[in-house]
Design a protein around this nucleic acid. Sequence first.
DNA 1: AGCACGCCGACT
DNA 2: GTCGGCGTGCTC
Length: 725
Amino acid sequence: MSSGDERDGGRGEGAPPEQLALIRESVRKAGVPRAKPRTWRGAALAKELPVARVLVDKGVLHLDRYFDYAVPEELDAEAQPGVRVRVRFGAGRGRVRDGRREGGGLIDGFLVERVAETDYSGPLAALAQVVSPEPVLSEELLGLARAVADRYAGSLADVLQLAVPPRSARAEQRPSPAPLPPPAAPEVGSWARYEHGGAFLEALAGGGVPRAVWNALPGSEWSEEIARAVGAALASGRGALVVVPDGRAVARVDAALTALLGEGRHAVLTADAGPEKRYREWLAVRRGAVRAVVGTRAAMFAPVRDLGLVVLWDDGDDSHSEPHAPQPHAREVLLLRAAQDKCGFLLGSWSCTVEAAQLVESGWARPLVASREQVRGAAPLVRTVGDGDLARDEAARAARLPTLAWQAVRDGLRQGPVLVQVPRRGYVPRMACANCRAPARCRNCSGPLEGQEAGAGGGFEGALRCGWCGQEEGAWHCAECGGFRLRAQVVGARRTAEELGRAFPAVPVRTSGREHVLDTVPGAPALVVSTPGAEPVAEGGYAAALLLDGWAMLGRPDLRAGEDALRRWIAAAALVRPQVAGGTVVVVAEPTLRPVQALVRWDPVGHAVRELSERAELGFPPVSRMAAVSGPPEGVAAFLGAVELPGEAEVLGPVPLPVTAVRGARRVGAPPVGERWERALIRVPPGRGAALAAALKAAQAARMARGGAGGEVAVRVRVDPPDIG
DNA sequence: AGCACGCCGACT
DNA sequence: GTCGGCGTGCTC
């Protein structure tokens, strides 16, 4: 028998395939019972539920559905839902040899379901192998992965690659420890500092599902507070999951959990643990041996049993954004999880993102905040130095450091360590007149002129280029004072830090940055120079902090520039002693700017609420939902022509993407160097995000299926693009 | 993606 | 007759 005959007899008689598909469809609709599986001759099948629905592990969108395979009798026992399998999957009809079908290669997949019948009209291939009997893909995890794939217009297989760690046979063989009985509900502890803090814990311990956006008071108790929330969820007999931005934060929560609950109640899931250890911990969670998890973003999918609480710390940190397709954000994944598992939700930060504010504004989550008196008692004094002050400040011109900042550092060093926050290297330096500090602007479009990375000596190298229109500037001179010397603000800040070190020779200088991140520093006087996000915790808190990266942070043409600046400032300032204990923060930035004012008043929530209402007015995310389509101009145009968008959708652009030829600033999804790409944004009103994602996915699938053959030029689709100018 | 099927022109 | 180039469509 020829396989061609079996597949679809009659193809040769001239009916076009789409017509055949229609006939098949109508036959199925007419109620013809699903077929008993037909297989290639020779295979003895499982007696019960002989069909396995398999998700093949290929991220391609047009394969984003289940394929039916026959379950051979000898695999019957092991071929349970959730196990990893290998199947033959390949093109064409394959060949039949020895009664077995050969053809495509063996590929990995997950067995999703066992059913009695198939609705596939052809003969089924048999499962080639059950990789291991460990059911790694539970119904809950599958549901979550599906929801994430739908939310982000991505494929299920891509999401599962993020959600299920690679197998390690050795890890599987080891038995997981026996689960401990639920602990007693923890004391309220420092949650008492927050209005409704006690009630939140009580609700969790009592089996409730409270949802809160928590604005944490400055200081280092946040990890302990998270541990108490986890303890409360465990006390109710449920599990808990904590996702934090980086390994340092994991270590803190890990320590707090151990201190509160002892050993053995929680697992730590981080990428840098090594594959075997990571899988072992993951398995302990899946098997229910451990009921609580703390980890970095990959842990957002951790298969915690009977989830009672999900916690996310500092959702504004961009490491919560997964770089792999379909690039889901931990906050959104945990929101989907909370909805799906009907569990408690805690989103905590020293600052507040617009998205967090929206959760409160919409009524989905309650605010968990401290009173103004509590805030005043915990926050340091914040003072500003703006351009006007600098211009008036003779000493600042000479010493390149405002008098106020100088005094704060000097006074602080008498009491303890002083933190100096400088911009990260690799930021595109903003250029300003070295003489009068006026920003250097493009003569074509008034955009900001940017330089290449400055050399170690602090000098400025390479061509100037406009950050907006990309035009090069060869012969700049200052429109304000006629000066022709430029300085990069980044360089200015670094040099200032160096000069501070020389000015206080008796004091040790310690640095913390990308290469070398310090975890803590002692409480003795020291200058601690750090880039944003790498600030060590000081024992007893810093006496003072100097925030020198105002221009670099606020100058970026990004929707989030203000929120981001405030978040980084607050994260540094939260490590400083309270004002009542002499803690002082000096920020070198214009005091009239909104994020600067929010820092002075220590009101990140108010800032986020105002940003949110502005975004709503302008139709920006997260109020509207957006997706970006980028690629070569022909590809973007073809995609926009083919996609069937929901009626309310609005297409912005396409516009040329800036040719980001800046070294070190490479981003996922950026065009290859030298290629001219365009990007269109698609916007839909609130509530239409799912429809938009579905439309994008369908269009992308159709194009991928045609592949290179149809001459389709590939485009990238990204839901929630992070960098909307 | 990969790969087999099949239609059509060229060669034994 | 039959070999193989490439255009098309499918993968249980």
